[in-house]
Design a protein around this nucleic acid. Structure first.
Lengths: 338, 338
DNA sequence: TTGTAGGCGTTATCAG
DNA sequence: CTGATAACGCCTACAA
């Protein structure tokens, strides 16, 4: 910038003004702009940050980027952030439980204007504590109302409504032996499981031992679950999977085991990832309003700082969006009930 | 830091030294460290950047994060970068062709110590030019030797070896009607197609009109391709898909169309994404050495700066790793050849 | 409208 | 071994 000033024969401050839209003579502005262009001048973000300017960096912490659902969420996040001129910095909670986590988080926190937590990271409270101390806005997405996240604003989905729609759909098709498969550990999933149990007991349908199956959120996990459920004395005629990844794995496992979907076994997923529509048969699932949730999260994280004169908000907002059941081919009338 | 200095009763410079491992009295070091801890002191990265310190940020530009293959690559990249203390900044080439692209790239370039381009971004040369001007290291991964990327160091896979292994495998199974499906536009894919054509003509197997099918790299694209190939007078008995996503789509389409895989139609993919092993049947595919490629790319981007006294290298390295054919259930002996 | 000067938080240099 | 001081690049009062 000094070089530009010299080349243009003006003071540095004038260059700064010309480049930042502060009133300057039109001639000066043009000259400065031209010269800056020629010299390939690039403002130094560090120097700006030093002056208190935002870094325009948004931290995103996600357990596993390769999970199709979170990959989609991350894409939405990136797009939404870019709209507002922000870039996304990736954080891994993968190696969690190590001190590496807090280190990573702290490191990023310094760079970032705000942070978005995607999914229940199953993270130890220390990380949250550190995050609270650092003076950046933290928003939790899909945290499933775990008490850990209580201090942060959050945006999520109405798991209860989603699961009720799924189970009610199965019940309406005549199913009475309905199992649940999900990764056991995370907040959102626990909500889904609770909703499943709550609804069934509400309408007087039993859930025998073994009908709730906790496995890893992966194809392999789904195969385990399938095997376990088929080994039961009275195998289910329908399964509610807590995620589409599990649902797709269950369909595969069923194909492998020569169990016809949906005629012998109905399967409902949750998320509506792109692959869900392409499965054979198409997966009946609960569509997550990813776009809306992410947009709301970003708005909370970096939107109108005007209304929030910083400091931790005493009553952080908790937004809940409603999902919608998408009926495809993986569910059909229960044979027993004909 | 000023506060820490005051609280510890020493000069700022001493605090800096104590915290950075510069020789200080052991007593002083401990005292300063303790107080810094108590006060929750966090070094200001902007100020450090101003002094010429690296930002420890690595830019990653990818066309679509939600593409399973690149999601995996991105995960590997993030892990590799974290190992070296770097964080990854996400870039989108999604809205490409706009000036937004160059803007984004420039923006990030200022923050980042280096940039990694994942896949042939089909990007207009202006972006590359800008990237060249900015004084950051840029490494191209999976760029497929497109001339555009010539000026940058690159790391990729030996597409020729991979495709030859795939096609040779099919030929050995007796297949003579072998089609190719791929997104037409990108460098790596073009290499794969060329290798396909080259190999087949080398062994005297014909590739009738219509046997090369260009579609979008998606499940939907695969379904189009499948339909087009089946509509041919003499449909292929085997298909080489340029990506696993397409291969999986083809399997789905075949299932839907009641074409048995592999007995009526053999399918080979490329990448070996996690879902490939879980498909029904398991996908025979060419395994991409993602880990190695990413590690090499990161090393090139932010590794030993020692040996490179900056300035654009006149002879940038181009690393090529060899893929390996993984045979699963989606390929079998051609019926015609029995 | 433009120039001058000061300071943001760090680290490096130079004295002590 | 430690303290004072300058400098990094940018922005912004304040003065001209």
């Amino acid at each position: 910038m000094k070089d530009v000033a010299v080349a243009a024969g003006v003071a540095q401050s004038t260059v700064s003004r010309a480049l930042n839209g502060v009133p300057v003579t039109e001639a000066t502005r043009r000259r400065v702009r031209t010269i800056a262009e020629e010299l390939g001048y690039q403002p130094h973000p560090g120097a700006r940050a030093l002056r208190g300017a935002p870094t325009m960096l948004l931290g995103a912490v996600v357990r596993d980027i390769a999970d199709p659902f979170f990959a989609g969420a991350l894409r939405a996040l990136s797009i939404e952030a870019n709209k507002r001129g922000y870039s996304v910095v990736l954080g891994h909670a993968r190696a969690a439980r190590d001190e590496a986590v807090s280190l990573t988080a702290a490191l990023k926190a310094r760079h970032c204007d705000a942070m978005v937590l995607l999914g229940d990271l199953g993270v130890d409270p220390r990380l949250l504590d550190e995050l609270r101390k650092v003076h950046v806005r933290v928003v939790a997405l899909w945290h499933g109302g775990t008490p850990q996240a209580a201090g942060f604003p959050s945006v999520g989905v109405d798991n209860r409504v989603g699961v009720r729609a799924a189970v009610a759909h199965l019940a309406a098709l005549g199913h009475r032996r309905i199992a649940f498969v999900g990764p056991g550990a995370h907040g959102d999933i626990r909500e889904r499981q609770a909703a499943y149990e709550n609804y069934l007991s509400g309408v007087g349908i039993a859930t025998p031992a073994g009908y709730v199956c906790h496995v890893a959120n992966s194809i392999a996990g789904a195969k385990q679950a399938f095997a376990a459920l088929r080994a039961l004395g009275e195998p289910p005629s329908a399964i509610v999977a807590a995620t589409d990844l599990l649902a797709l794995g269950l369909i595969h496992a069923a194909n492998e085991g020569s169990v016809a979907v949906p005629s012998e076994l109905s399967i409902v997923g949750f998320d509506d990832i792109p692959l869900a529509a392409a499965a054979m048969p198409g997966l009946t699932t609960v569509r997550m309003p990813v776009q809306k949730i992410v947009a709301a999260g970003v708005a909370l994280a970096i939107g109108d700082r005007a209304q929030s004169n910083d400091g931790p908000l005493l009553d952080p907002p908790h937004l809940i969006f409603k999902p919608r059941l998408i009926v495809r081919g993986s569910t059909s009338r229960c044979l027993d009930s004909i």
